[in-house]
Design a protein around this nucleic acid. Sequence first.
DNA 1: ATGCTGTTGTTATGATCCTACAAACGCCGC
DNA 2: GCGGCGTTTGTAGGATCATAACAACAGCAT
Lengths: 260, 260
Amino acid sequence: MSVDENGAIDAFERLGLTSYEAKVFIALHRLGSGTARDVARVADVPRSQVYSVAESLEARGLVETQQSSPIRYRPVSLEEAEETLRNRFEQERERAFEYVDEVKRESSGEETREDIWTVRGRDRIDDRVVALLSDAEERIVFGTRLPELFTDPIERALEERSSAGVAVLGLTREDRVRERLEALEGVTVETPSTFPETDRRSGRIAIADDGILLSVVDDDDGSETAIWSSGSLFASVLIQLIEAGEAIPVDPSSSTEGSA
Amino acid sequence: MSVDENGAIDAFERLGLTSYEAKVFIALHRLGSGTARDVARVADVPRSQVYSVAESLEARGLVETQQSSPIRYRPVSLEEAEETLRNRFEQERERAFEYVDEVKRESSGEETREDIWTVRGRDRIDDRVVALLSDAEERIVFGTRLPELFTDPIERALEERSSAGVAVLGLTREDRVRERLEALEGVTVETPSTFPETDRRSGRIAIADDGILLSVVDDDDGSETAIWSSGSLFASVLIQLIEAGEAIPVDPSSSTEGSA
DNA sequence: ATGCTGTTGTTATGATCCTACAAACGCCGC
DNA sequence: GCGGCGTTTGTAGGATCATAACAACAGCAT
């Protein structure tokens, strides 16, 4: 998906440049090379500011300077710039995480018991579901009404667990999801009995042994929020409710409905 | 090299977190999990601020929340956090550079002629030297008095070019550099005739056909600055001067001395 | 040679925004 | 009644944006 200049400037800002730095950098790529005046004409940056901004970019390795009269600037190649920014990112990442790795304390096993955690965002929930399913030893239940929430890694995890002898049950009303589930060897598929066909908020349900995850999808922006728990009384009670076919919304504003 | 907490906080800030976000994230890793009060005790963050800071981290996928009383927070694993930050970086990088790639204009060939460019920073100069040397078709001169400026990639480039039939001459007084140069097949090594043995500012000299790079090293902080040019009259004149054994400092404040 | 004009590069200043930091307060459980 | 929790408000400071002034210089016309 293409972005406009404002989007690119925003992206550069999140990469650590100021708005002026981003504009000068882009302008120099447009021009090939140029003086402060050239840059100011192309970029929405006052000419008097271009000098110090370009100097800052040079210090960052993103621009080269020709000390002529007038001074000429030129950007390094995109490849060089990407590598420079990536190297800086990796360097800071290493600095930051090396320290945290030193001081972190492993979460104690008990601390996660009796706990229910909230996770937001589709990618994060994808990962959590895969982690949950991959740990299953005895049985799995997975259901969704949205094909896009039935991701390839989830599909592979179901297949792999089924091959490993874990009992896998799929729940869905959605034909496209049903077909993919049925295509997996050893996976049985049922139509959920208690969710109304008009249900539009449920996201995914995943049960793996004593772990459970329930997600909901916001109709407005499609964002997904999940709660999950593993090895807790809450989890076992909720699993019982689901298996009895009577999932009960815990709270209207943050429903724990399973998939339709 | 290990870093302290302030260094880690600085690094997280350059990765796009605020100071408070970094402190809360680190504190949660120290604790394993905890309430706002727990975090405030460990981190230099007022308790009343922890709630919104942790919410922001959750929105970034770096923290999970347990809506209990009191609210409990726990960090995602370091692996997850690293992946999250890296994915965000790559996403912004792609957004930014995709746009610049669309709008950039190739530098015209002539525009780089008659031009002398300044490059700062050891890594960038490393790359420029390698690029210069790798393009040589006929002859190379390389010299430095500092072993650390004779990098492995430079060494490999000299070796590769020598194998390709390019005449390669090394210039140095420094024994360690001399030994490495002499170990390269087909490379001759000479002692420079004009630089005083007490020279402490020269960095590197690299000549490749009609291109030249000269760097100097700042005694105070060891930083390196280079000028380079290729295919220009300036370059040919300077090459002649070097080859006549009479390199002349262009300006006392930004000397263009060659290597010792 | 001189005066005028436009450009260059540096510096200063004010406005705005974001973040750090402090404090207040209603509600709740004990 | 007290302490803890969670939300909200306010202020100060720094960074960035944006504008403006000015000395020096180059080019050009006279």
